[in-house]
Simulated assay, not measured.
Amino acid sequence: MFFAVLILAALKADAQVEYPFRNPKLSDEVRIADLLKRLTLQEKVDLMGGNAKVPRLHLALSDEAEGLHGLALGGPGGWGPRGRPPLPTTTFPQEKGLGATWDPALMKKIGALEGEEARYYYQNPAFDFGGIVVRAPNVDLSRDPRWGRTEESMGEDPYLVGTMTVAFIQGLQGPDSKHWQAASLMKHFLANENEDGRSYTSSNFDDRLFREYYSVPFRMGFEQGGSRAVMAAYN
């Protein structure tokens, strides 16, 4: 997974702007470079995990939350806080059903609500759970109906999936490009449509399939939607 999007995800409310990486007037590149040079090797290793903290810099990073068709903070999947009942969130149809709506405006509203719930639970001290890096949307293309996770894909057409992906990301992250409501982590990059032996088999395809098919919705999500994170495929 690509965690660069987590670098400035959440800061302690009482922290003062004492380092350049805290200054929102500077560019992302300058702030990230400043932060990286201040971290020890062990701190950099620690930041590869979820919900990491660097107390000496008053830095707390967001964990991730599952959000395929609604924020998952409980239930039989084990996504909830241990020893506590599931946190209520809004559930939507599986992505196959969302793709069948052909309605980007509706998808943007769904993303916005999911982002609001992610921010609420993560930032509210009464809950302090989940994360504002949301594992959604699933940008995989479902070419083969025999694939066991076909219901997690919005369809087989790259333009449709890309258009719906852009709408969801824009809703989830919000209209402010500097202060996101939440962050979209697209998945699974790339050509992820094999469940049997998914952790060791190879997805082979030619350059044209890469450029005109598999990469299209991801490219749209990055360039038009504004996502800066992606989950690697199991292949």
Score class of each variant (00 low, 15 high):
2 F>Y: 14
13 A>P: 14
14 D>K: 07
15 A>K: 05
18 E>W: 11
19 Y>D: 14
21 F>K: 07
21 F>R: 08
24 P>K: 13
25 K>W: 14
26 L>F: 06
26 L>Q: 10
27 S>G: 04
27 S>A: 08
29 E>N: 04
29 E>A: 12
29 E>P: 00
31 R>I: 03
33 A>G: 02
34 D>N: 06
37 K>V: 08
46 D>W: 11
50 G>C: 12
51 N>S: 15
51 N>K: 15
52 A>M: 12
54 V>N: 05
58 H>A: 15
60 A>H: 12
63 D>A: 10
64 E>N: 14
67 G>Y: 06
69 H>L: 08
73 L>Q: 04
79 W>Y: 08
83 G>Q: 07
94 Q>C: 12
96 K>F: 10
97 G>W: 09
98 L>C: 00
98 L>Q: 02
99 G>N: 06
100 A>L: 08
101 T>M: 08
102 W>T: 06
109 K>H: 10
110 I>E: 02
111 G>C: 05
111 G>M: 05
112 A>V: 02
112 A>R: 06
112 A>I: 03
115 G>R: 00
119 R>D: 06
120 Y>I: 03
120 Y>E: 08
121 Y>R: 08
122 Y>Q: 13
123 Q>L: 15
123 Q>E: 15
124 N>T: 12
124 N>D: 14
125 P>Q: 13
127 F>I: 09
129 F>E: 02
130 G>R: 02
130 G>A: 09
132 I>L: 10
135 R>K: 13
136 A>P: 00
137 P>K: 04
138 N>R: 02
140 D>V: 02
142 S>W: 01
143 R>W: 00
145 P>Q: 07
145 P>E: 04
151 E>P: 14
151 E>Q: 15
153 S>P: 11
155 G>H: 02
155 G>C: 04
155 G>P: 01
156 E>D: 08
156 E>V: 04
160 L>N: 02
160 L>E: 04
166 V>I: 04
167 A>I: 03
168 F>D: 00
170 Q>T: 01
170 Q>D: 07
180 W>S: 13
182 A>Q: 03
182 A>L: 10
183 A>P: 00
187 K>C: 04
188 H>T: 03
189 F>K: 05
190 L>H: 06
197 G>I: 13
200 Y>P: 15
203 S>Y: 06
206 D>C: 11
206 D>K: 05
208 R>M: 01
208 R>S: 09
209 L>V: 10
209 L>P: 01
210 F>C: 13
212 E>D: 11
214 Y>A: 05
215 S>P: 08
217 P>Y: 11
223 E>K: 15
224 Q>M: 13
224 Q>I: 05
225 G>L: 06
225 G>H: 03
227 S>V: 03
230 V>D: 03
230 V>A: 10
233 A>C: 09
233 A>E: 01
235 N>P: 15
